[in-house]
Design a protein around this nucleic acid. Structure first.
Lengths: 129, 129
DNA sequence: CGGCATCCCTAGCGATACTG
DNA sequence: CAGTATCGCTAGGGATGCCG
């Protein structure tokens, strides 16, 4: 990760530890499903089954797995209502919201450059058949 | 992808086609290696071997694979110097630069919330041993 | 309904080696 | 030096089934 904003007031060991932690977190978060889940949650509170409907293409397993990971990293909050049948709701925490904003940026980017990308792909295929 | 900014002046078929394309692009881009490569490139022009050094942990194969993908989508430009030994340079295009900005956002986010995340992880582990 | 565990299979990835 | 190809292995991820 390029940004070296730690060098002040931290000794070298802490710097490298922080950086490896940063890489680890980045690897956790920077995957398709995690980002789509965060984006799907947005400002809303959704239950497990609703999320499954929103994300589309995600399997039961991948959803739980990523939800656990996001919860562990404190990006989402998980509240269980002890009713029957059980009702589990997920919502973005403040850190989660903050990240969502940047993901929104990625989505906007995708739509903004959709045409250019499609064109580029055609040029690419046409170049070497 | 939540953003529905297409419904005007496009018929339904085009809308769904655009959306599936958007999802496809998103799935291409939203992976660890691609994002790290873009971030590593930044404003600079780097050659293959330099990139390998910058990204850290990436294998020869993954690097080429992702570079091809990014080139195909028009995020990077690849220029071959016909010297011996060959020299291949990669640089971000304008779309690539635009995406990089949002990725910078993700990196900043990671550093910004590093402490909170670490704390959250400890709480998480402590909760159910 | 939501979560965990199990089985199973594919594709992602690393390692190695060969060409221009 | 950069890229392609081949070979293995492991881990990702789907499907199913059983509990709270």
């Amino acid at each position: 990760m390029g940004t070296k904003q730690f060098s002040d007031s931290l000794d070298q060991a802490d710097v490298t530890r922080a950086d490896s932690l940063a890489r680890e977190i980045f690897s956790d978060i920077a995957n398709k499903w995690a980002l789509l889940i965060i984006e799907a949650l947005g400002e809303r509170t959704l239950r497990f089954s609703e999320l499954r409907g929103e994300v589309d293409g995600i399997s039961h397993k991948m959803l739980t797995q990523n939800l656990r990971m996001l919860e562990r990293n404190g990006l989402i909050e998980r509240t269980v209502h002890a009713t029957v049948p059980p009702r589990v709701e997920y919502t973005l925490t403040e850190p989660g919201q903050a990240l969502r904003v940047t993901i929104d940026g990625m989505c906007d980017w995708t739509h903004r450059y959709l045409g250019d990308i499609e064109a580029s792909r055609h040029r690419f295929e046409a170049r070497k058949p």
